[in-house]
Nucleic acid binder design. Structure first.
Lengths: 159, 159
DNA sequence: GGTGAAAAACGGGCGTG
DNA sequence: CACGCCCGTTTTTCACC
């Protein structure tokens, strides 16, 4: 994972705000919007990438277009010793598992899973999750409809 | 939200695979990789955007860089009538709320929240959530550590 | 500011319904 | 014929040094 703090000034924050909204925005466009030279922006963006402030540029794809209609959250209770994420790492390798969080309390992990339909979910639990060593039990929450899922961070105006 | 199905061929899927991994990949690079002319790729990408297959291009920003160390999931029990997302829409307007899911069962909603620290979480619950009409109760799950959070969909090889 | 490269916009060819 | 898909070409714009 990413290391430490990196001091961001007001301009960096503005760049992040633009890039978070549209990762394909030109250097030139950013420069125009901020009233700076394109080269200066380029330099800053490269540094933000290099310092792991910008982790990646992703295209967010419509799950419906890929026929992935089903979204679920599964709480997973494990035998993992605290601080050792054996099960967590195994869960992270499963493609349909989009997120894996180590959570407080006895549950162990909370994972976010996308499948084609309910049959796909059953399939995942029967054929994949059941083969992961160290899982004691699971509790599944089905999502009926997603109201918001942009995962955009709040970028402060003043730091 | 996005409408309906759109027939994707093998080339579209390859483009999506590339774009999901790196949204800033050149048309020229994609063209080279797929052995096609850049203009053909451009045409397809535009169509994928227009058809809402590609929803957005996001820069994924390191939460630690913005000092957002705290991640939580909150189950929210509401008085919402089934199918009417009054509370859900209100929750979606809160900036720190990254995701809002209407879930099956009596809970109502599951939301994903990022705050600076535990004080920020308390603050959100006391000052913002408490002011949302229709919330009966909440149950909060704290994330100790995130193992995976790329939200990348599984793109099929054959459809 | 300059150079090489890529994006955007246009037209044309080709196969299919 | 009309349509969808792909390919050149040209012009404009951008990335990078």
């Amino acid at each position: 994972m990413a290391k430490l703090e990196y001091s961001l000034d007001q301009i960096d924050l503005q760049i992040l705000r633009i890039m978070q909204d549209n990762a394909r925005t030109n250097n030139a466009d950013i420069a125009r919007e901020l009233g700076m030279a394109p080269s200066a922006i380029l330099e800053r963006v490269k540094k933000l990438e290099q310092k792991d402030v910008i982790l990646q540029y992703n295209a967010r794809i419509n799950p419906a277009a890929l026929d992935q209609k089903m979204l679920s959250f599964i709480f997973i209770k494990t035998q993992d010793i605290i601080g050792v994420q054996k099960v967590g790492l195994l869960l992270a390798e499963i493609p349909d598992v989009l997120e894996v969080h180590d959570i407080a309390g006895e549950d162990g992990y909370l994972i976010k899973v996308r499948t084609n339909d309910s049959a796909g979910l059953v399939d995942l639990m029967r054929n994949t999750l059941s083969k992961v060593e160290g899982i004691i039990s699971t509790r599944t929450t089905i999502v009926l409809e997603t109201v918001k899922e942009d995962n955009k961070l709040v970028i402060p105006t003043k730091e």
